[in-house]
Structure formats: C-alpha cells, structure tokens
Amino acid sequence: MTTSTTVGKPRDPGTSPAPAPRRRKNLLGRQPLGIVFSAPYVIFILAVLAFPLGYAVYISFHDFFFTAPGVAVERPFVGFDNYAAVLTDPDVGRSFANIGVFLIINVPLTVGLSLILANALNRVTRFRTFFRVSYYVPYVTASVAVVGVWLFLFAQNGLVNSILGPLGPDPSWLVNSGLAMPTIALYVTWKQLGFFILLYLAALQNIPEELYESASVDGAGKVRQFWSITVPSVRPASFLVTLLATITGANLFTEPYLLTGGGGPDGASTSPVFLMYQEGILQGNPDTAAALGVILVLGVLLLAFLQRRFIGGKDD
C-alpha cells in the first residue's frame, strides 16, 4: 500500500505536460472498463425489468389482448376502465381480504418465532450446525415438493386429524372455508422461517455482549434483557423481516394453486396473483390482470411505508 502511494504521488506532477488525454479518460472514470463490466447486467435489467415494468402500466391503461407474433392491431387507450373492472370485481375484493387474513397470521408469527428461535440458537453451542441446517431445509426445498406432504398431513383422514381425533375440524383443514387460508399462512410461515432465523441471527451477533453483562449486573432477568436489549437492537432486522414476509404474502400463488386446488373451497383461498393468472392468461384478459398487478404493488408499497413508519429501519 505504502509503495503504491509513494510511487503514484510523485508521478502526478511529472505527467503534467499531457493533461488533455488524462481529462478525456476522467470523463469515463479512472477505469472505464467498469462500464464494459457492468453493461451486460444493466442491459439485462433494462430488458427484463425496467421495460416490462413500464409495459405493465401501459397494458393496464389499454384494451389489450393477445395476438399472434408480428400482427399489428389497434389497442385503444381506455383510461381507468381496466382499473374500474378490477375494483368492482367481487373476486378481487375476496382475494385481497384473503391476503389480509394471511398477513395477519403470517407476519406476527414469522417475526415472533424467528426471533425466539434465532435468540435460542445464538445461545446454544451444542448441535448448533444441526439446528441451523434443519431450520433452513424447508426454505431451500421446492414448495411443490413440500406441498405434497402437507396435503398428506392435512387430508381428511391425514395424520394431523388422526392425532386430533374428534378434535379435528369438520370439514377438514384445506376444504374448510374458514381454515383454508389460515392453513396456508401456517404452511408459508413454516416454509420461510429458516431464512428469517438466519437474518435475525446476523443481527443478534452484532449486539455487543457487554450490554447483556451490564444489564445482568443491574439485576435484569433474561426475559427483561430480551425485551429491553434484544428486541430494540434488532429493530432494523424486524423491519426487513416484516417487509419480506409481506412481499411473500402478496406473491402467493403456488400454495392456493396446489394446496387448496385452485383457491378453494369456493374462492376462500384465492390470491391476487392466482386471479392474475386466471384472468390474464387462462381467460385472455392481460389488461385487467395488469391493472390488478399495479393495484397489488401499490398495496404492497403502502404496507411497506406503514411498516417503515411504525417499525422503522434506520434508527439504529
């Protein structure tokens, strides 16, 4: 390090006779090759993210339908017609209510359980690797695969009902309109928890041990320490966890499609993304589906803003 700076410094005044090419280089930065290195990624993002994003908004404001490739058709501007169609559709209202139920169960459960388990994991040294791996195994496994077991476990005569005996719900979990969505919320909590435990674990490891030591000298018990030190210290992580859990909830598709056989029973577990698939691709109305997508994203942004307001992310 020292050699490079001492060599570099005296060279600066020495090369003063040729300032012009130097300035041209500075226009693109000291290492213009960085532009070349970044170009594929930037082009990729513009092509599959930025452009489709704008296109989604365009589609949602036009009378848009599928055509064969290369066929030029008129797709008139229709203003907010697609939005009006979406907002007056009772199925859409139902799917948003379902997501509401999902989030009310999933988000607090995820935050609570992952913080408690991460905290326990941070204290125990024995079998630590075993616990860590067993927690994230569901997260890294395909939802399609684990849905198979949950179907088996929560079937009418499945293991869960066998254990519960007469206490088992009737109609059974996934075909009960009151329980289908909570069961999905439980499933997703279980599936994603490992990832959130890892997030919290990283945050917990940044808390200085002295805080706990001095609190314990002051006579604070473990429970008090958890509420007064741990919970406030991991606030930024909590914000991230609620945000990511909300985004996961808004993206729900595989679970209502497979676990409850397409949003059943009778629409009690449809999700907005499932409706986008049904409307946009099966029934060929991409314009209303795109409008639904825009509304959904605005909803997520609103929730993210509220979470930021009440949980906060930056005040550490």
Binding site: V48, L49, P52, L53, Y55, A56, I59, F64, F66, T67, P69, I247, A250, N251, P272, V273, M276, Y277, G280, I281, P286, A289, A290, G293, V294, L296, V297, V300
Partner: peptide
C-alpha cells in the same frame, strides 16, 4: 421490484412476442 407486476408483461413479451 415485485415479480407479480412483471408476470403479465413478461408473458406477453417472451411467450407471445
């Protein structure tokens, strides 16, 4: 950027166009 917003335009572009 959430994927659900890209679902329809990506389908239109990649599959149809």
């Amino acid at each position: 950027v959430p994927f659900q917003l890209l679902l329809i335009p990506l389908y239109v572009l990649i599959v149809r166009d």
